[in-house]
């Protein structure tokens, strides 16, 4: 099987030849090419080369066109801060007051240089790889993006006490999110990963999510013209498995803190699971610990398909050593061949 066949089989809740692996490499590509993170993201060619090199090196079953979450904030005119050893982060929220929301317009995808670079990477990768490997694009959910737009505290005030302004911001973000997702699909992305950390009960209680983020996800995903995966970026997923499945997503990124057996049972035949190695803890692992973690995860989550092995945050930290990532792949090849014993 090639990567596309392997992944599509797993998503169809069937057993492929082996467990598919998604190493979610974003800024890690700079390490691969020996560049600073800022330099790395300055040219689409860098990202293309690193994605292809790392696919080969780690037998990665996806190409990941995600630059960094704050790329969307740049499109809105906000500030991004680069560091030497981590993901570029959003600066001070660009919405300074709730009253400002009414003046915000969704950015045009084709006016934004950073978004154009992502699209260029997607187009080149698609041209080179065709349908052999899934190309995964990324959007931030309209419901979660405001944490970077307005700051978490003000955003919670909106969610709980300012329903009109909340609706107004959601409308702006939905329009942007749908355009951004569809532009990536048009450029060649196979699927869109919808990052929605606020959908996790770790951040927002389920009852509130059902009133807000769930409805927004349902409406937004229905307008995205392609397959979607929802990722909760390390937040627990078990209590919202059925809800996320009902939004129309085919894949769910779950947490290192979720009970694997319980979530596997709940997700069976409904939604394919993606996860859940603890990327932060990974920096402490040696090869033996890596083998143990990967074998255990395969044993608990891989039977019957419906599972893609990955980290639990959707991004491999800069500090994780290459040896550990290679060991993850080797262990999958050795112990992740179907049928799982």
């Amino acid at each position: 099987m090639n990567s596309m066949e392997r992944v599509m089989t797993a998503i169809s809740h069937k057993e492929p030849d082996r467990v598919p692996v998604f190493h979610m490499f974003s800024h890690y590509g700079a390490k691969e090419l020996g560049l600073s993170i800022k330099e790395y993201f300055s040219k689409p060619d860098h990202v293309v080369k690193a994605q292809l090199d790392m696919r080969k090196k780690y037998s990665n079953d996806c190409l990941y066109t995600f630059f960094y979450a704050a790329v969307e904030i740049e499109a809105f005119g906000g500030e991004v801060m680069f560091t030497e050893d981590g993901p570029p982060n959003s600066g001070e929220p660009f919405i300074k007051s709730i009253g400002q929301i009414k003046n915000i317009k969704p950015p045009k995808i084709y006016d934004s240089n950073p978004l154009q670079k992502v699209l260029e990477v997607t187009r080149i990768l698609k041209k080179i790889i065709g349908d052999e490997v899934p190309i995964v694009g990324v959007v931030m959910s309209p419901f979660s993006l405001p944490v970077m737009q307005i700051g978490f505290e003000k955003y919670l005030e909106l969610i709980y006490f300012k329903k009109d302004e909340f609706k107004q911001l959601m409308k702006i973000n939905q329009e942007f999110c749908v355009s951004w997702a569809n532009a990536q699909l048009e450029a060649g992305a196979t699927a869109i990963c919808y990052f929605d950390p606020l959908a996790s009960p770790t951040i927002i209680e389920r009852a509130k999510y059902l009133e807000t983020g769930y409805k927004i996800a349902k409406k937004t995903l229905s307008q995205i013209k392609g397959a979607t995966a929802t990722h909760l970026a390390s937040g627990i997923a078990f209590p919202v498995v059925d809800d996320i499945a009902a939004t129309g997503s085919a894949v769910l990124g779950f947490s290192g803190e979720d009970n694997i057996e319980a979530i596997k049972e709940r997700a069976a035949k409904k939604i394919c699971l993606l996860g859940n190695l603890n990327g932060i803890d990974m920096i402490n692992w040696d090869k033996e610990k890596t083998r143990k973690e990967v074998k255990e995860l395969i044993q608990k989550a891989a039977r019957g398909g419906g599972f893609i092995l990955s980290d639990n945050h959707g991004e491999i930290p800069w500090q994780v050593s290459e040896d550990i990532l290679l060991e993850i792949t080797e262990t999958i090849k050795k112990h992740g061949t179907y049928p799982i014993n």
């Binding site: 919670l156 969610i159 009960p201 770790t202 951040i203 509130k208």
Partner: peptide, 13 residues
Amino acid sequence: WENGQLSLSQVYM
């Protein structure tokens, strides 16, 4: 919150 029963937003509010 730590044991997964409550949300961060509830802790904050």
